[in-house]
Design a binder for these strands. Structure first.
Lengths: 144, 144
DNA sequence: TTACAACTTAAAGTACACTTTAAGTCAACA
DNA sequence: TGTTGACTTAAAGTGTACTTTAAGTTGTAA
């Protein structure tokens, strides 16, 4: 940190604080997702509130929102409280998509687990006489 | 389907059966993930067993495996039962990575849910007097 | 004061997983 | 028999999200 009292982060320190690279922060800024302040010499600085914002952005991103969806969100956010219905609708849409993916991915995990167990039983000689994976799945009521 | 008795799928029919495009099937074939048969005229055909294989590939892919990891898996598979330990280790590694991601993604969902609720309470005038999202999260013991 | 790390910009490059295009072959139906 | 749709190939193009490069500026420490 450059100073201790005034909560100002250089791009390098801020990058460490939020777990992104400095180029990525510049990239997000160019995309309109972050708006750092500037010193007189032109250098960026960030404040504590910006950490919360970036972390929130990363949570949204982690639920599957693309950069352009985040741009839309940010645009509405900048327009003030009148756009809360739009933002809410966007987030609900993101959530719905997320839940679909989430269920799919849980099924993928089930099959992965089944395959791991199948290999382990095969290695141990437990699985009956070269039973294939498809039959093995059916024994558990797992499909596809 | 071209015929009903002999379980042979043209690339177009097979694409429909597994939910991929014909170009993607050719792409996967070039990557070594699928090996269709050929008619005398050079055209590909696929059989029922190939459907199971592709669906399994897509499950692995859905757990986060990249094309190159799938290539490694397929190479070991082609080498026979001696490589079961390697395949098992790979799948366990994939599973471990998956579980890390899975936990992260659940946290992202929690924050998304919290934000949706925060907006809804704000719209309804429930959230106390412009309480910000950070404070709101803390009321539930949710962080970051 | 000189060296060095960290910053600035715009633009080009990368990785991944496809998708599209171009040019041609082939099979079935009107 | 001719036209249409599905197939064949290799190669180029696309979208997303960064990452790297190049060329230059600035602040701090020896």
């Amino acid at each position: 940190m450059t100073t201790t009292t005034t909560e100002r982060y250089s791009i390098g320190d801020f990058a460490k604080a939020v777990g992104l690279s400095a180029p990525t922060l510049r990239y997000y800024e160019k995309a309109g997702l972050i708006e750092p302040h500037r010193l007189d010499n032109g250098r960026r600085y960030y404040e504590t509130a910006d950490i919360n914002w970036v972390k929130f952005l990363l949570h949204l991103k982690g639920t599957g929102m693309s950069i352009s969806e985040l741009q839309q969100y940010v645009t509405w956010r900048a327009a003030g409280d009148d756009t809360i219905p739009q933002r809410l609708a966007l987030l609900k849409h993101v959530k719905a998509d997320f839940l679909v993916q989430f269920n799919e991915v849980q099924h993928h995990l089930q099959i992965l687990n089944d395959k791991i167990n199948w290999y382990e039983e095969k290695e141990a000689g437990i699985t009956q006489d070269h039973e294939d994976f498809a039959s093995y799945l059916q024994r558990f009521g797992h499909h596809e």
